[in-house]
Design a protein around this nucleic acid. Sequence first.
DNA 1: CCCCACTAGTTAGGCACCTAAGCACAAATA
DNA 2: TATTTGTGCTTAGGTGCCTAACTAGTGGGG
Lengths: 173, 173
Amino acid sequence: MTQHPEPDQGAPSLDQARRQIARYGLTADPQAVLVAARLMAAGARVGQAGEVHFGRFGLSTGRYRLLADLEDHGGEKSPSQLAASLGVTRATVTGLVDGLEREGLVARRPSTEDGRGNVVILTARGADKLRDVAPEHFARMQAIIGGLSVEERTTFLDLLARVVAGIDALTAD
Amino acid sequence: MTQHPEPDQGAPSLDQARRQIARYGLTADPQAVLVAARLMAAGARVGQAGEVHFGRFGLSTGRYRLLADLEDHGGEKSPSQLAASLGVTRATVTGLVDGLEREGLVARRPSTEDGRGNVVILTARGADKLRDVAPEHFARMQAIIGGLSVEERTTFLDLLARVVAGIDALTAD
DNA sequence: CCCCACTAGTTAGGCACCTAAGCACAAATA
DNA sequence: TATTTGTGCTTAGGTGCCTAACTAGTGGGG
């Protein structure tokens, strides 16, 4: 039988936050802690749902993003450039390209300018795959935030950006 | 190199969204697509930063959450219960407990009520570890959303909940 | 001109997550 | 009572992501 995570979990309550803070005698604001925890839970949830979605097309979020980035760039890009624009390491790109190459959606060609470099090119099958996934993909994205008004979306975008900035500030140690 | 000051990686631009939609002749709203894409990027970013944070204590997000949930429950819980409250599969819990048991932060004991069941218990070392991590953990969470006013936090919480509801609606097919 | 530091890409090992399949035991049913 | 169905946990295999270490070219400075 199919195992899948219970729908509503991973979303902590305010009481839970309060209890944890109290247990260690800390002074953190429970609401702040709750918001952060919910954000993390939501992030995980969105990511997982996306994975399931792309899985139906024999892809994954990472693979789709690589393919889309490639097409957006004329269908030809080096692994290093891909890593930079996708925000992952080169090692991760190696793995993604390995998988996509196995499926014939992408191909590797030695670089003509740099003896140690590669160029990843989008094959016809890769372009077809993108064309295949696109309608559902965009419909899905629209459905996810469809419950928000235009003003709410703008607000959400702003809040999201500020939170990410907060994280970046912490990360830059 | 990137001629355009393409902000940060993984965070797509409105132009990019527009271009992709146009390429396939679709009718999606670029702003909606942008918000969804940014949410996914933010989720991934938050998750990764958390992983780095917990890594400094020899933990991971999953392991910490399991430990915290255990303590919140009197230090004793079955793998199935843990899976349900963490929102992951039992197989994942098996892996997490394997790791935590190896470090002595947790122990397995056969259930007295159910011959095929286990009970995961928090060891003294496990409780110590939680006590160790707590101050930085809560400070970090507070810092992340510290840039938001109380009202903004409430708004953010509401928007987040509605977006997650939208995802759940899509997932339930 | 050669050496050495830097860069491109891969490999190896680790973690978290998933699905699917397997065993063991429990509970419901014939 | 004997059988079937369901539940608890583990194992096996796959993906994505990371860091660290390695190979192979590039290119600058002594």
